[in-house]
């Protein structure tokens, strides 16, 4: 589903991604972990084109995202992303937040979009909040709406950029639970997070990134092997 080949990226003269090779199968959940500044968020943003690469290739479901002649807007309709700061549109109601893109970008009829949106709101347990503005919701609620907004476009891939890092502890669970449900429904997901519990329970594979390089990529069990004693296990222990 996602094929990342030999990706290099420089920020000015800073080499932030040094030859990343990665692939994600359909239905797989890949969790990216690593210290701050390791490049994991940047890598995620390369997948939907928010960040441009200098060398290499990023192919999502057959579309070369970074090629200049690709219609990026069209490609982005099939890639959903959820941000750390939710980024809901504050001047729109929850319902409008969810329906605006299907209507204006995909060309879905307003009635259909409305129906889909209400279904999604029921799914996340907030149908009564349809007419409410984002600033009247808690952080956890906003993030769940953000996930619903991404799902409304019926994407093939869902990207998560530290979705719970800006949330108060008591709200983290509701968001992680929702993400777990998505994983069970076989959604292809790439998640950047510090939540080791989630990684352990939901991820199919985990990748540790440090200094712009994938240090290790393996199953969660191998990651959290109690008998290992290296940089990665130190990191994992630190975070958990």
């Amino acid at each position: 589903m996602i094929d990342i080949k030999n990706v290099h990226k420089w920020f000015g003269s800073l080499h932030v991604l040094k030859g990343i090779d990665l692939s994600v199968d359909e239905g797989e959940v890949l969790v990216l972990v690593g210290p701050s500044g390791s490049g994991k968020s940047t890598l995620l943003r390369c997948i939907n084109g928010l960040a441009r690469i200098n060398e290499g290739q990023v192919v999502v479901n057959g579309v070369d995202i970074q090629a200049s002649k690709t219609n990026l807007n069209r490609a982005r309709q099939r890639i959903g992303i959820v941000f750390q700061q939710f980024n809901l549109f504050p001047h729109m109601t929850v319902l409008r937040n969810i329906t605006i893109s299907p209507i204006k970008v995909k060309g879905v009829s307003p009635d259909e979009a409305h129906e889909t949106a209400m279904r999604l709101l029921e799914r996340i347990g907030m149908p009564e909040k349809a007419g409410v503005r984002p600033d009247q919701l808690s952080g956890g609620q906003q993030q769940r709406v953000a996930i619903a907004r991404a799902l409304a476009m019926q994407p093939e891939v869902m990207l998560f950029d530290e979705p719970t890092s800006a949330l108060d502890p008591e709200m983290i669970k509701e968001v992680l639970d929702l993400m777990g449900e998505l994983a069970e429904e076989n959604m292809t997901m790439v998640v950047v997070t510090h939540e080791m519990g989630f990684a352990r329970g939901v991820a199919d594979r985990m990748a540790f990134i440090d200094g712009g390089v994938i240090v290790e990529i393996s199953s969660p069990d191998q990651f959290f092997e109690p008998s290992r004693n290296d940089r990665i296990s130190n990191y994992a222990r630190l975070i958990s």
Binding site: L50, I81, N87, S101, V105, R149, A150
Partner: peptide
Amino acid sequence: EQMEAARSMGMTYLQAMRYV
């Protein structure tokens, strides 16, 4: 980030300007 969110949903620059 608002522009990012809008573009990430497939909106063009002008659509993002206009609606968001």
